[in-house]
């Protein structure tokens, strides 16, 4: 110890300070989540009688069972899954095709069209909401999950942009060689670009999965039949009729959050990469 130079001592002191600060701040960030988890396990009386207590007096797992039945959680979960899978497939298929068109093919009007694509990103959804609703109703899509899934098959500017950037980084020589071998454009897209772009496609899929899971305003607008509600919307309905049952609300919220946390841990890399990509264009 005594052999340490002043600088090293200083360094060590800062590093202790830094770790302490990081621990304190991350504890603050995690606190709401921890409180949610703890509240979901508390007996109802404790939440009303002693609202500021931290730990459950006794652990009540049955809160979860009650929430499952009251919501009806599994039914809504099934709808959420259908929505998520449909939207992810739609997004990945359409956006990768369109991005290929923008990134790897030369055609007249491409630049202008790309500018239009970017412009649509800046348009607030409010402007198109009402006519869109009218149009979808006319098409008989009202109260159908398809009203929410189908638009994803028509591409999304943001993902198209992301994938285009990625596709452009793949060497052009690969395509040229394939063309000489007689592969069609679709063949090049399918056999060469898609396999090489798996990480980017996974990122897009993950993003869309989160978006669909969270989506509240489309079901609010398009769905009226309880049989078709996804969780995000079903949960809101639950809040208004069980607003005084904090233990059930928290149990339901935990169950609604967990799949996303799981997803994050499984696919942390593609998330982080995707997010940083959006910033560094």
């Amino acid at each position: 110890m005594s052999s340490m130079t002043g600088g090293e001592m200083n360094n060590q002191r800062t590093s202790v300070w830094r770790i302490t600060l990081l621990i304190v701040v991350s504890a603050l960030f995690m606190l709401p989540l921890v409180l949610m988890l703890l509240a979901s396990l508390k007996p109802a009386e404790q939440l009303t009688g002693d609202p500021y207590s931290l730990l459950p007096e006794r652990v009540v797992w049955s809160n979860y069972q009650q929430a499952l039945e009251a919501i009806p959680y599994l039914k809504y979960l099934a709808n959420s899954i259908v929505l998520c899978v449909g939207s992810v497939v739609g997004t990945v298929v359409s956006c990768s095709l369109v991005a290929y068109g923008f990134a790897r093919l030369r055609w007249r009007g491409r630049k202008a069209m790309f500018a239009v694509l970017i412009a649509t990103m800046l348009l607030p959804w409010h402007v198109t909401m009402i006519p869109r609703f009218v149009l979808f109703s006319e098409l008989g899509l009202y109260n159908q999950l398809a009203a929410i899934i189908l638009p994803t098959f028509l591409g999304d500017a943001f993902y198209i942009f992301m994938l285009r950037q990625f596709f452009m980084s793949i060497p052009e020589e690969l395509s040229e060689a394939a063309r000489l071998d007689g592969l069609s454009e679709f063949g090049i897209y399918w056999r060469i670009i898609v396999p090489l772009s798996k990480p980017a496609l996974v990122t897009v899929a993950m993003f869309q999965l989160v978006v669909s899971w969270n989506d509240f305003s489309s079901p609010l607008l398009y769905l009226s039949d309880q049989e078709k509600f996804p969780l995000a919307y079903g949960l809101e309905q639950f809040v208004s009729s069980y607003s005084d049952q904090t233990h059930l609300l928290m149990a339901a919220s935990v169950m609604f959050t967990l799949p996303m946390v799981f997803l994050f841990f499984v696919a942390q890399k593609s998330f982080t990469r995707g997010i940083t990509m959006t910033g560094s264009k």
Binding site: V210, L235, M250, S253, M260, F264
Partner: peptide, 17 residues
């Protein structure tokens, strides 16, 4: 991970929370 995790909480759930 700890700093980022709250951002994964769905907005409906975080509103309730």
């Amino acid at each position: 991970t700890l700093f980022y995790l709250p951002s994964m909480v769905p907005i409906v759930a975080s509103s309730i929370l």
